[in-house]
């Protein structure tokens, strides 16, 4: 990583704890690259995470960083953002953290349209606890708690967040690293709740059980199965198979929560003065 980017890292904490070939470093680089390209003041960026492999990322990032409890990063972030709306608050989470134990916070933050950027390092598995299935593990794939194959239907996290009212929703993968950086940039710039579903390979605990033992094999799987939003729409649903869409799925304007609440404060203070 160029020295212009290592200034955003706590280099004394490296090498990181992730396995060889893990995609989380690629997503983390994409985030700091996006921050760099946007020219954000690092003092005004706060990065908040929950629990899991993904959530170790903020410890390596040279901003104000908060590593919280499992699933609750978005709720902590809501407090930080409301207390200091001028901060850029970025939440780093994983698929288990965001969609299982923290699912409630994800949908409600999206509904409120509070100005947080949530980046889900989505490796479809619980890596930190060595490979249990998550709410996004594909049907039929194997996990330490799905030894006969996954029988639960997975969430599409982008559809979930769009359904809940999130106003910026995008997906990319670690194969598409430059595209990933670009959608993260757009997400950070978006005023309101933004969500990036960042597919990130876990060769150790997902790949090994699913014939994708090498990181490269997993990245090639992303390459072969990712299709643009436009192309996705052209494929008949019955023929989609393991393919998935990437790109920006939603980018809409709507009243942002902190701004709406600021108006509440103005109204309450004015009425208080009138009394």
């Amino acid at each position: 990583m160029g020295s212009d980017l290592t200034k955003y890292l706590r280099v004394e904490k490296l090498p990181h704890i992730w396995c060889a070939g893990c995609g989380h470093g690629i997503v983390t680089r994409a985030i700091v690259k996006a921050i760099d390209e946007l020219g954000l003041d690092p003092v005004k960026v706060t990065v908040i995470s929950g629990i899991g492999c993904s959530s170790r990322a903020p410890g390596y990032m040279n901003f104000d960083t908060l590593h919280t409890t499992h699933g609750r990063a978005i709720a902590f972030a809501t407090g930080v953002k409301l207390a200091r709306p001028e901060l850029k608050v970025i939440v780093i989470t994983g698929d288990g953290d965001a969609a299982a134990i923290g699912g409630n916070h994800l949908i409600h933050a999206a509904r409120r349209n509070i100005d947080l950027t949530v980046i889900c390092y989505n490796n479809t598995i619980y890596g930190m606890t060595s490979g249990q299935y998550s709410p996004v593990t594909p049907l039929g794939s194997f996990a330490s708690t799905a030894p006969y194959g996954m029988v639960e239907r997975p969430f599409d996290l982008c559809e979930l967040v769009m359904g809940a009212g999130g106003t910026f929703v995008a997906r990319s993968t670690t194969y598409h690293a430059r595209h990933l950086t670009n959608v993260i940039k757009q997400a950070i710039q978006h005023k309101g709740f933004s969500f990036v579903d960042a597919f990130s390979q876990c060769p150790t605990y997902f790949g090994r059980r699913n014939n994708l033992r090498e990181a490269l094999a997993m990245l090639n799987w992303y390459k072969e199965n990712a299709v643009s939003r436009e192309d996705w729409a052209k494929i008949p649903p019955t023929e989609r198979g393991s393919k998935f869409p990437i790109g920006v799925f939603k980018d809409e304007e709507a009243p942002e929560y902190c701004e709406s609440y600021r108006k509440v404060i103005e109204k309450a203070m004015k009425e208080g003065d009138a009394k």
């Binding site: 706060t46 908040i48 908060l66 919280t68 409890t69 609750r72 709720a75 902590f76 972030a77 809501t78 407090g79 930080v80 953002k81 409301l82 207390a83 200091r84 901060l87 409630n104 916070h105 409600h108 609440y261 404060i265």
Partner: peptide, 22 residues
């Protein structure tokens, strides 16, 4: 600022976040 959170857990989390923001 007042906020009614989505659950009790989130409320406790949010006050920790606000306090860390000073």
């Amino acid at each position: 600022t007042f906020i009614q959170m989505e659950d009790e857990i989130a409320s406790m989390a949010a006050i920790c976040g606000a306090s860390l923001a000073g």
